[in-house]
Amino acid sequence: MEDQQSFFNFLRMPPEMFNELLNRVGPRCHKIDTRYRKALESGLKLAVTIWHLASGDKYPTLQYDFRVARNTISMFIPEVCQAIVEEYKDEVTPCPTTPDGWRTVADEFQRKGNVPHACGALDGKHVAIRCPANTRSLYQNYKGFFSVVLLALVDANYKFLWLDIGGYGSMSDSQIYNASEMKECLEDGTIEFPRSRFHA
């Protein structure tokens, strides 16, 4: 709190946002002390996780930055990430399921970009990985490196509406979409696109 700019530079968020995140996610990450050792504080685990996500620092570097053993870090970072997803998923990535919801998205595309009848922008992003053993051709993409694909649908304000993460690097966006939950929901009517305004 004494140097908020340094706090922001370090964790890429102001102290107020960190505290709000801690209040919501902290209880999901809390462990109880045992006779053998004291549990790490939720705030420390959250700070290590956010710094890892913001900087990309590897566990051995984090171990010296935060004075926490790398094997411990490797255990709690996935847990904290999952806790963040579980806490925020319904309010951060709400995919419309009604015609009126999709019309709102389409109207925003029309207003902001003069693009009519757009219910979202869909694209994939290759995320570089180390090649898992015995899977060379599955994860090697057309750019020549190993990756998993993040396929996302966003609205006119770049807000995520739907995500598919983990497609093989060798797969195209259309292959991932064709095997996705999104396509299945569109076909079975779970997600109701509005009828065309020009429909007779």
Rank of each mutant, 00 (worst) to 15 (best):
A133Y: 04
L150D: 07
L122V: 01
L163S: 12
A152V: 15
G113E: 06
E108R: 09
S137N: 02
I165V: 15
D155W: 02
I165W: 12
S180G: 02
F146Y: 14
A128W: 11
Y139K: 12
Y177F: 15
G169K: 10
K125P: 14
E181S: 12
Y139S: 08
N157D: 14
A121Q: 01
V154C: 13
A179T: 09
N141L: 09
D173L: 11
G189Q: 09
Q110A: 10
G120L: 05
L153T: 04
P116G: 03
P116N: 11
V154K: 07
Y139R: 08
Y142E: 05
E184L: 13
G189R: 12
A179Q: 14
G167R: 03
Q110M: 13
I191Q: 08
D155P: 00
T190M: 03
K183G: 00
E184V: 04
G166K: 02
H117M: 07
D107C: 09
A133F: 00
A121H: 00
Q175Y: 04
A121V: 03
I165E: 04
N134T: 08
F146S: 10
P194H: 03
V148M: 14
V148I: 15
K112A: 07
G144Q: 06
T190K: 12
A156H: 00
C119H: 02
L138R: 11
T190H: 07
D164N: 15
P132S: 06
E108V: 00
Y142Q: 03
A118G: 08
R130P: 13
N114W: 05
L186G: 00
F146G: 11
P132E: 06
G120H: 04
A118C: 15
K125R: 10
G144V: 09
S137H: 02
E184A: 13
G166A: 04
I129T: 09
D173H: 10
P116T: 06
A133K: 09
G124K: 06
H126S: 12
A179Y: 09
G124I: 14
Q175E: 13
G113A: 13
G169P: 15
Y142D: 05
F109I: 03
P116I: 10
S137E: 05
K112L: 13
V154L: 10
